[in-house]
Design a protein around this nucleic acid. Structure first.
Length: 595
RNA sequence: GGUCCGGUAGCUCAACUGGAUAGAGCAUCAGAUUUCUAAUCUGACGGUUCGGGGUUCGAUUCCCUGCCGGAUCACCA
């Protein structure tokens, strides 16, 4: 039972007893630091039922709670704000509940299922910084839903088909000389990406050459030999030409192997992969069905459209005049297929950048028009672009930061800084490597997740590797220090029972603050899922670590003479460490026992 | 041009959906402490919340208007 919950019940009792009517329309918020108390009741809205001014209303409720509720120690009123000080016994009881509950921070199964899509890369180049935000975000939101009692299905759609991969294929055929990941030592996705870049360079050179020969830019773009080749490959692929399909399969398999390694290091996983090459025909069928039901219309050239002007949007093409499908068509098919594969899911979450907001608005609207009632339970988890201090970062421009390289740099930096501090001199090499990995990736993940997903954010490589402040490593370090305390207690054979905790009658202010923070975990957890925002959890973890550090600074645990207090503080430390570990786990971050 | 986001301390971000004197981290300056892991803690400094109107007990938050930045409006994905 959380303190919030207890107080709300008591306040409702007070209201009906004092004013003859109750309401749940009141705000209970954290008390500002400058005032005494942990919870504040905002009394302005209550003047309607109290028919007194805010101060009097607050005082009446305060007096009632002190006299009758048994949970409020004292109170103060500032303007219309009623600041409540809870009895220490309440905090102790709250803590006993948390300590006894191994599942604290994991809400009971609610019987619902949800699907989360994330990552969904193209197969012509390696993952970059933007993908990192996508993957960490998607993974974390999936974990948040799990902790809120949902069964979660993590999936992605792999855009394995289309002109982009044909470009890499064409360049490899022309300039590859049989290069493979095995004989070059290059990671598969990087190898294919290399040829995508070669394509681009060659293409540009050919265009300018053709333009020098008098062609317009448009003509040159279409006639450039390497582009002609790529388009031809796409056509052949759709006709299932044996050689083309074989080349496509080979190069895709290189990419998949490369992606697997990247995902493994990121610590993300998927239950099921959807491939565009398997699903793109399905969308086409559904569009044709919709044409029969008058949802869509056909133009004279044979192309098929949907008219969304009555919904304030434009017309949108769904099948080209040559009968081939576009991006939207495929997404229609994939969505339908997923609800067929997982009929019990309550909804679907698409983790995709905010440049595609219009696309998803249209997609969900079309699905609704096609009569799928689940369309309203599809949600676009939209996130902002990641900028670099030097300028914008976008895959079309040359300034991409490669995901594999960045992760390695973070781990290298973690190693450099950790070795410089010199606490791991006697560690096994293997253990040390694991630690650098935890810190490097923890820093990266925390930095990308601490910002509201909707917002565009700045990734500053220099700042991100700072191991102080609002960072993952700061929290990891706090955890390691707490674990040291717990280890020491274990070596002293100190055990804690519920009776030990029960005997505590008073708390230090620093304990109360940290305990208050600890008790907020499940509230934050619900908020985070509701808002699809791991940032809520990142902030929570940071606040908890900070509060514990204050406690740690002020209270010398092992010089405590009173054995029950000593035990309480050890139990408390253990609970904080556990909660930090759980909260960070929701962000996909592991925390070390020592560092 | 239409639509949708965003604009908060020098910098990076918060502000529980309308609540108190707008908070953290970094940076800067001053201090504590050398332990239960100092990768810590305590202070100080820092604000016309882009400008201007409106709504009410009360606005960073809601409405109108102007300015700035971004995204999007393809028979690309």
């Amino acid at each position: 039972m959380s303190p919030d919950h207890i107080l709300k019940t008591e306040i409702q009792k007070a209201l009906s007893s004092l004013f003859g009517q109750s309401t749940d329309q009141f705000q209970l918020q954290p008390t500002n630091q400058e005032f005494e108390g942990s919870h504040t009741l905002v009394c302005f809205p209550l003047t309607k039922i109290s028919r007194k001014n805010p101060e009097e209303t607050a005082k009446l409720i305060g007096d009632y709670l002190v006299a009758g509720s048994g949970v409020v120690e004292r109170f103060n009123v500032v303007k219309g704000f009623l600041n409540l000080v809870l009895k220490d016994s309440v905090w102790v009881d709250v803590f006993r509940g948390i300590y006894a509950n191994a599942d604290y921070g994991r809400l009971p199964d609610n019987g619902q299922e949800v699907m989360v899509e994330y990552s969904s890369p193209n197969t012509n180049k390696p993952l970059h910084l933007g993908h990192l935000r996508n993957n960490f975000l998607g993974y974390s939101v999936a974990e948040l839903f799990k902790a809120n009692g949902y069964k979660v299905h993590k999936v992605q759609i792999i855009n394995d088909r289309g002109i982009h991969i044909c470009k890499s294929m064409a360049a490899w055929k022309l300039f590859g000389n049989g290069e493979t990941p095995e004989n070059s030592g290059l990671k598969g996705d990087h190898l294919v990406g290399k040829y995508y870049v070669i394509f681009d360079k060659t293409y540009k050179a050919q265009i300018s050459e053709l333009m020098n020969n008098g062609l317009t830019e448009d003509e040159a773009g279409k006639q450039a030999p390497i582009m002609v080749m790529a388009v031809d490959m796409l056509r052949k692929w759709e006709q299932k030409d044996e050689d083309t399909v074989a080349l496509w399969k080979m190069m895709n398999s290189w990419v998949y192997k490369g992606f697997e390694a990247t995902y493994a290091r990121m610590g993300v996983d998927f239950e099921k992969l959807y491939y565009e090459s398997d699903t793109y025909l399905l969308g086409k069928e559904e569009v044709l069905k919709g044409l029969g039901k008058d949802v869509f219309f056909k133009k004279d050239d044979g192309s098929i459209w949907v008219d969304l002007t009555s919904d304030g949007l434009d017309q949108k093409v769904l099948l080209r005049s040559d009968g081939t499908s576009v991006y939207m068509t495929q997404d229609i098919g994939t969505a339908i297929l997923r609800f067929r594969d997982f009929p019990k899911i309550a909804g679907q979450v698409y983790t995709v950048g905010n440049e595609q907001e219009y696309h998803f608005k249209v997609l969900f609207l079309i699905l609704k028009k096609l009569g799928f009632e689940w369309a309203k339970r599809c949600f676009h988890l939209s996130y902002g672009m990641v900028d670099l201090p030097t300028g914008k970062m976008k895959s079309r421009e040359g300034t991409v930061v490669d995901a594999d390289e960045l992760m390695q740099e973070m781990v290298d930096e973690a190693e450099k800084q950790t070795r410089a501090i010199g606490k791991i001199g006697d560690w096994e090499e293997k253990e040390a490597k694991e630690l650098f990995e935890m810190i490097g990736l923890g820093a990266l993940k925390f930095f990308l997740l601490k910002v509201d997903p909707k917002k565009r954010m700045l990734f500053d490589p220099n700042e991100s590797i700072q191991l102080q402040g609002f960072t993952g490593p700061f929290i990891q370090y706090t955890h390691a220090r707490i674990r040291a305390i717990v280890r020491k207690a274990e070596s002293m054979d100190i055990t804690v029972s519920d009776d030990d905790l029960k005997s505590i009658v008073s708390l230090e202010p620093a304990e109360r603050d940290a305990l208050n923070q600890l008790s907020l975990f499940e509230t934050r957890l619900k908020e985070a899922a509701k808002e699809y925002s791991p940032a809520v959890i990142a902030n929570y973890a940071f606040d908890l670590a900070k509060e514990y550090n204050k406690f740690y600074q002020n209270i010398p645990i092992f010089s405590e003479a009173d054995p029950s207090k000593l035990k309480f503080r050890i139990a408390f430390s253990r609970a904080v460490a556990d909660t930090i570990r759980k909260a960070m786990g929701l962000l996909g971050i592991t925390v070390p026992d020592r560092m």
